[in-house]
C-alpha cells in the first residue's frame, strides 16, 4: 500500500502538523515504506499470539486514592497571558 498526497495531508491535519507542499512527496514515500514493512509482517501467522499491549512484560502499579496535589493554579498560569477569572482562554470553540 502506498500513500498519496491526500493521505499525507489528512494525516498531517489529524496530527495538527503544518507541512510544506514540496515536502509531501518525501513524506508519502517514507510513510509508504513503513506500511510496506507492516505488510511484510502481515505474512507471519499470528493466530495464536496475543496482541502485545506493551513491550515490557510487567503490569501497572496502582496508587492509593489519596489527594496529593495542591492548588498551583497561579504557578501554572504564569506561562500564559490568556487567563481570566482563573480560566484558560483559547480561540473560540464552536460546538
Amino acid at each position: 500500500m502506498s500513500l498519496d498526497k491526500n493521505d499525507v495531508e489528512k494525516i498531517a491535519h489529524l496530527a495538527r502538523l503544518a507541512i510544506a507542499d514540496e515536502d509531501i512527496p518525501g513524506y508519502a514515500g517514507s510513510l509508504s515504506s513503513i506500511l510496506q514493512l507492516v505488510e511484510q509482517m502481515d505474512a507471519v501467522d499470528t493466530k495464536n499470539v496475543l496482541p502485545m499491549a506493551h513491550p515490557q512484560d510487567a503490569h501497572q502499579r496502582l496508587r492509593e486514592d489519596v489527594v496529593t496535589e495542591k492548588n498551583q493554579r497561579e504557578h501554572f498560569q504564569k506561562i500564559t497571558e490568556n487567563v481570566e477569572n482563573g480560566l484558560y482562554l483559547v480561540p473560540k470553540v464552536l460546538d
Binding site: D65, V66, E69, R73, G86, L87
Partner: peptide, 18 residues
C-alpha cells in the same frame, strides 16, 4: 477522591483550575 491518573482532587464546584 482523586483523579484517575493524578493526585488532584475531584470535588465538585471548586474554583476553576484549582
Amino acid at each position: 477522591r482523586s483523579k484517575i491518573f493524578s493526585g488532584a482532587a475531584t470535588a465538585y464546584g471548586a474554583e476553576p483550575n484549582t
